[in-house]
Design a protein around this nucleic acid. Structure first.
Length: 766
DNA sequence: TAGTTTTAAGTTTTT
DNA sequence: CTTAAAACTA
């Protein structure tokens, strides 16, 4: 194809991007730096394959790591060509779930499995590891999860890399047995099981290889070993495979991600071509330089040179602030004034933090100051007790072998069915094939327990009846519409039964939550703690209304909840997410961009965390790089002198990463320029960042030097005057005076107590 | 045994 | 300061 013949949608691409889109015939590795337009490449490639290569959209599989990314990709591909909507765009995990619903039977897995989250796994494990302390159980759950990331079964000798103890193998094996018995899966299974099926069932493998002729993987640097194996199994000799990644943005090592995957791609997929995308279209040059200068400190990089196509812009600003309250003030002020003077919109701004807990301070302040914000990806909603209870009811309906769900809600509210009775039912039913509903109905029990169980089962069976009766989800809606909603409408006037059901599946969810007594149970708690839990249950009911009221609808609903918890936390419904400031963790920003970014809490111990060294420190550095490269126009970094943690206030040091930023591309804000009120305590006025970046000084020679914190010969650095050395330290009425001679020849004196903060101590080699 | 009060412990990051 | 586990009371 000659230049002139390029379709118009290839016009905006640069030569490397175009080469990547047009590439065909061999495996392809695209090394795409931050902001280099990789999403554009993938989406354009999908469209191009359909339009120019006449490829069936259904034969294209594109895998991402987050649902957000998958949705965005689908949307953008469809803009180029409507048919791209038929391509399969999923996360690895949702692809795995899709695969298992259809082919799980080959591994003895019923198609109506439910996905266990980490909490459920811990619950199950604690029944295996009897009376082990909780932290130990959690550690074990984590190790099992890691084992699956590395595609290791209980028998695998390589398991020693994670935990070599025989006891661990046994627990892992026992856990797998129980999971098989229950018929549910965990996150790791969503990758591991499909891979195993593809390996053991050549027919299935052939079918999939025929279907997916093109497979693309985004964020390949975050793929784990199991995902690599899955990819390998899906690829036949004819499959065109194309992966996109950036080793500098690998931030999920703790979850089993293997950078090796990307480094070794050319070996694992022989004959692979490599295309580099090194033009950054997102950030201005100083932002990119600041980010790059930090990640440059890492070893073992593939290495690349990103060029900032946008050219110059304002320097990133480092704000050194007294504490986290003032940090929040600083953010709010910056944002508010930019909006008030028409420079920016609320949605141009993002506040980044290392841990979810840090969002709280910003939330309370922004709420008070009436600045619209949204919190991205706080998983809190689905972790709430009341929500988990409701979901357990639904899960148990779908899979009556689910002992974890059963145990959770059988005696909630109390029905006289204690743990002893529950255990008896579980043990007996395992002998009889596992169906708790069936066995629990027949088994002989004490009268109190029997009536409790019957009451519980009635709720479940009523729910099931509702589910099965609803054959056509549109036409039949009135059938139960006569039953449930009028009852609730009547009661919705009364404060107690506030749950209102709407369309579809929400009818079932509302009924179940109400009849089971879960609603009342939590409502009673609300009387004491404030009225939130019932509202949360209502939210869940509302969410269910998007799904049809039948078995498939329920399964879809549950699967969606397990795999995509990034739903907006719309607790502050007053603000429109499209016109709000974004609060987000560094991890969650991957793949996103904002005009203006504030990276907060850039302090030693928080970012990087105290215990990070070696490989893990490098990962923190990459995380810093990811965060900084989200910014298009302006970047701010904040660091506090002290920080509240566990209710205690502790002194805090600026992050190592701040020192690694090229001096030339950072503007330091440490004077109370526009708002004196930032500085609660006088002692912070004029205190410079440099002073705080230093460790405590070693013991001085004499008493005065000790008090001053400076001794003769100490090399130092000053913002305006450059490098120099201490000539003399003597006492005075106002405290120790330090005499300095700069390398320029200029001499000066300062009072160590005050101006001393403007001088940074340096090693002798400066 | 259920439900409450007291005490201790603890914060990564996520599909 | 918040949450989870242990201890305690009725």
């Amino acid at each position: 194809m000659r230049d002139a013949d390029y379709p118009s949608y290839l016009e905006p691409l640069n030569p490397e991007q175009r080469e990547a889109v047009l590439h065909t015939g061999k495996p392809l590795l695209i090394l795409a730096g931050a902001g280099s337009g990789k999403t554009r490449v993938i989406t354009t490639k999908i469209a191009w394959l359909i339009r120019e290569k006449g490829m069936d959209p259904r034969s294209i599989l594109a895998v991402t790591f987050t649902n957000k990314a998958a949705r965005e990709m689908a949307e953008r591909a469809r803009l180029i060509d409507e048919r791209a909507g038929d391509a399969m765009l999923r996360t690895f995990h949702s692809f795995g779930a899709w695969f298992l619903r259809r082919n799980g039977k080959l591994a003895g897995l019923d198609s109506s499995f439910v996905i266990y989250d980490d909490d459920d796994v811990v619950s199950l494990l604690s029944t295996i590891m009897e009376n082990a302390p909780k932290p130990e159980v959690k550690q074990c759950a984590h190790n099992i999860s890691r084992a699956k990331d590395y595609f290791l079964s209980p028998e695998d000798p390589l398991l020693a890399k994670i935990d070599g103890r025989k006891k661990f193998r046994e627990i892992y094996a026992r856990y797998e047995e129980r999971m098989a018995q229950i018929g549910n899966v965990d996150f790791g299974d969503l990758i591991k099981k499909p891979t195993e099926i593809l390996r053991s069932q050549p027919k299935v493998a052939r079918r999939f290889r025929e279907r997916f002729q093109v497979i693309m993987v985004d964020e390949y640097q975050d793929a784990n070993v199991a995902q690599f194996h899955l990819l390998k199994e899906l690829c036949g000799t004819e499959t065109y495979v194309c992966v996109v990644g950036d080793d500098d943005q690998s931030i999920y090592r703790f979850r089993g991600a293997e950078v090796k995957n990307i480094l070794e791609f050319p070996d694992r997929f022989s004959g692979a071509d490599i295309i580099r995308l090194e033009r950054n279209y997102r950030s201005t040059s100083p932002i990119l330089q600041a980010a790059s200068s930090v990640v440059d400190y890492n070893n073992g990089r593939l290495g690349k040179t990103l060029r900032a196509e946008r050219g110059e812009g304002p320097l990133p600003v480092l704000a050194y602030l007294p504490d986290q309250d003032i940090e929040a003030d600083y953010c709010a002020d910056k944002i508010e004034s930019s909006v008030k003077n028409g420079e920016a919109k609320w949605s141009d701004w993002a506040i980044l933090y290392r841990t979810n807990a840090q969002s709280l301070g910003f939330e309370t302040l922004f709420l008070r100051r009436k600045i619209p914000y949204r919190v991205v990806g706080s998983l809190k909603f689905y972790e709430r007790e009341e929500i988990k209870d409701a979901l357990a009811l639904l899960s148990f309906m779908v899979n009556p072998r689910d002992e974890v769900a059963f145990r959770r809600v059988v005696n909630k509210p109390t029905r006289g069915v204690g743990p002893v009775t529950a255990q008896k039912i579980i043990e007996t039913s395992i002998i009889n094939g596992g169906d708790l509903l069936e066995t629990g109905g027949k088994i002989e029990l004490a009268q109190k327990a029997r009536s409790g169980i019957n009451a519980f089962f009635k709720v479940i069976n009523d729910g099931l009846a509702l589910l099965e009766n609803e054959v056509a989800d549109n036409g039949e809606k009135t059938a139960d519409g006569k039953e449930a909603p009028p009852k609730k409408r009547k009661q919705s006037k009364k404060k107690q039964q506030g749950l209102v059901s709407g369309e579809g599946l929400s009818v079932l969810v509302a009924q179940l939550v109400k009849d089971s007594g879960i609603a009342n149970y939590h409502e009673a708690q609300d009387e004491v703690t404030g009225n939130i839990r019932l509202n949360n249950l209502q939210e869940l009911v509302n969410a269910a209304s998007l799904y049809p009221q039948n078995r498939e609808g329920l399964l879809e609903f549950l699967e969606h909840i397990e795999l995509d918890r990034s739903l907006e936390d719309d607790s502050n419904k007053t603000s429109d997410p499209k016109n709000s400031v974004t609060f987000i963790t560094f991890h969650n920003t991957k793949g996103l961009e904002f005009r203006r970014v504030i990276m907060t809490g850039i302090e030693q111990g928080i970012f990087p965390r105290e215990d990070k060294k070696g490989e893990e420190l490098e990962e923190e550095r990459r995380l810093f790089y990811v965060g900084a490269t989200r910014a298009m126009d302006e970047l701010y970094l904040t660091t506090c002198a002290e920080r509240r943690m566990y209710g205690r206030t502790l002194p805090s040091q600026p992050s190592l990463f701040l020192r690694e930023i090229d001096r030339g591309c950072l503007q330091i804000y440490d004077k109370p320029a526009e708002r004196q009120s930032f500085y609660k305590r006088q002692s912070f006025a004029g205190r410079s960042f440099n002073q705080f970046s230093l460790p405590a000084v070693s013991a001085a020679n004499n008493e005065v030097e000790e008090r001053a914190g400076w001794k003769r010969g100490q090399r130092l650095f000053h913002e305006d005057n450059g490098y120099g050395a201490v000539m003399e330290v003597r006492d005075s009425e106002d405290g120790p005076v330090v005499r300095v001679r700069f390398d320029s020849g200029k001499e000066t004196r300062f009072l160590s107590e005050f101006q001393g903060r403007a001088y940074e101590k340096m090693g002798d080699d400066y």
